[in-house]
Design a protein around this nucleic acid. Structure first.
Lengths: 216, 216
DNA sequence: CCAATAGTGTCTATCAGACAGTATGTC
DNA sequence: GACATACTGTCTGATAGACACTATTGG
């Protein structure tokens, strides 16, 4: 049976675009004071050696969702699992891909730097990004803007700081994400209502040991 | 020439989904105190008589953008032109359309009620929506949430109040959009910085005539 | 004068931001 | 005890929210 729409057309009568997903995966390199982008270097094909955001085509034949495609791209291209990519928007300029009409559903996610150890990921600071293919520069810009918005709402909403952290560690994360320095006492009062004291302290440093917290 | 990706596959080797756009077009019925949704009644086909959001398939063969497809849907299905639809997100549940794999890029826009005069549009208040097909209920919910967010930022960002308005008219619009009553004096001070006094007043009513404003 | 709506002076509670203090650890 | 870092009391200025007053029109 073939379903037809109000003009008597079936789905087969419409030319269909290819649909891809691209993921701007952001992280915080240690010691760095700015966000990093996880790229992968392409091998083979006509774009060998060029770095790009991890991405892939949607596998319609496997009834794959966009989320699953994004997770597959992260796993296969940069060896990262356990993420929760969020849609940013669809990039749909007709000439954005020279191979044909390809819509790209841009996603954003974030990963603690420690989880990248030993993976195929290459992390590049926001300030030293190479030119990226397609509209990946716009994807990164949208991703950074989105993450900054989210981080204005409360303490480490996406878990960049890990499970347990001191207030100074949390402040460092927020400063790197937002790209601006923050005041210690103001920051403390801002985030404290959203945190739970673990009862433990961070020992072994100079100065008074700091209490550690979890997100509530 | 056929471009091949890093696995030696060309675009033709991937099964492609159909891509549709759906638009939640919101308006403010006169006298009403809540947002309305512009629906169109389907004619012919297997869903005749059912009401749905205006939508259409992306015309890949015409190199159409998603924005253009959304504008075309508004023009052809409900007779509305001159809008600026914004993407909400992609709805991609594999079984959302019984005809096959169809991704829907949901859009939102807003239209002054006066511009609907004589069109094929049917406006239904948010509180009295019939069950909508596919995931159109979710689209409407996302659209309303988005418009509410936008209207928290400043005076009538999307132009629902028209060109020129009194503060009371503007307040009525905001109350209907947000679904909550607002305080006269607080509202006034909140929006005044974003308005320009026209120098004119609204005559012919009981009480002191109100000055009219434009958005700045 | 009265009714009705427009517009404003002012009080208060809250909050961001900052300074400068106190507390508690290492060396 | 010196020093470094964690934590906090408190001041200030800005802002949201609300009350109640004044202003200006039509009838």
């Amino acid at each position: 049976m073939i379903w037809r729409d109000e003009h008597g057309k079936s789905l087969a009568d419409h030319e269909r675009p290819s649909v891809a997903v691209d993921v701007a995966l952001l992280t915080l390199p240690p010691g760095g004071d700015e966000l990093g982008v996880v790229l992968h270097e392409r091998t083979g094909g006509h774009e060998a050696g060029r770095r790009a955001l991890p991405g892939t085509f949607l596998h319609v034949d496997r009834r794959e969702t966009l989320r699953d495609a994004a997770l597959r791209a992260l796993r296969d291209k940069v060896g990262v699992t356990g993420r929760e990519p969020r849609q940013l928007r669809v990039f749909d300029a007709p000439d954005r891909d020279p191979r044909g009409r390809v819509l790209s559903v841009a996603h954003v996610d974030v990963v603690p730097f420690a989880l990248l150890a030993g993976s195929a990921a290459e992390v590049v600071g926001l300030g030293s990004l190479p030119p990226l293919p397609y509209d990946h520069d716009d994807v990164v810009a949208a991703a950074v803007a989105h993450v900054r918005d989210v981080y204005r709402a409360g303490p480490d909403p996406l878990g960049l700081a890990g499970e347990e952290f001191t207030l100074l560690e949390l402040q460092t994360v927020h400063q790197a994400v937002l790209g601006t320095p923050l005041q210690k006492d103001t920051f403390r009062r801002h985030v404290l209502p959203g945190l739970a004291d673990t009862g433990r302290t961070r020992e072994g440093t100079v100065g008074k040991p700091a209490r550690t917290f979890r997100r509530r």
